[in-house]
Amino acid sequence: MRIVQILSLIFLLTGCLNEPDCVITSTNLVKINFKKDSKTSREITFTRINVSGLTKDFYAQEKVTSVQLPVNPDETEATFTFYFEDRTETIQLTYTRKSEVISVTCGAYTNYAGLTVTESSFELFNVTNTQLLINATSNIEVFVE
């Protein structure tokens, strides 16, 4: 009967059901860090950055070492076009979307993940985090001379 006692205890200890926390860390922003090398950031003054599906310019005349660019919640691919220092560079991305219900009181949200660079005019880049998260330090590192 020892097995009965052990299994009964497992039932009591593991059966507790807690609702998940109402913390949504997902975002539709891709964070791109610009680097000279693996340790040094590269500061760039952008003329502008264009995002596919939007007419608005991003980071126009701004000097930055990283940017956060939005992806379309109704699509699974995006193209970012960077205009800077008389250069035009593009990055094409694909990503997956997943609709999730956290709980009745927290509601539902879209989780973006599976980030992949399908094409890039930048020669060197590195996908560091495939999930789009509010607190991500970087999704893609781009090396610019």
Binding site: N28, G53, L54, N72, P73, S99, Y109
Partner: peptide
């Protein structure tokens, strides 16, 4: 089936 309101940076809000 799931229907929910969402807000996406720069793309605005909508119903999914």
């Amino acid at each position: 089936q799931l229907t929910y309101d969402f807000t996406a940076d720069a793309f605005g809000s909508g119903v999914k």
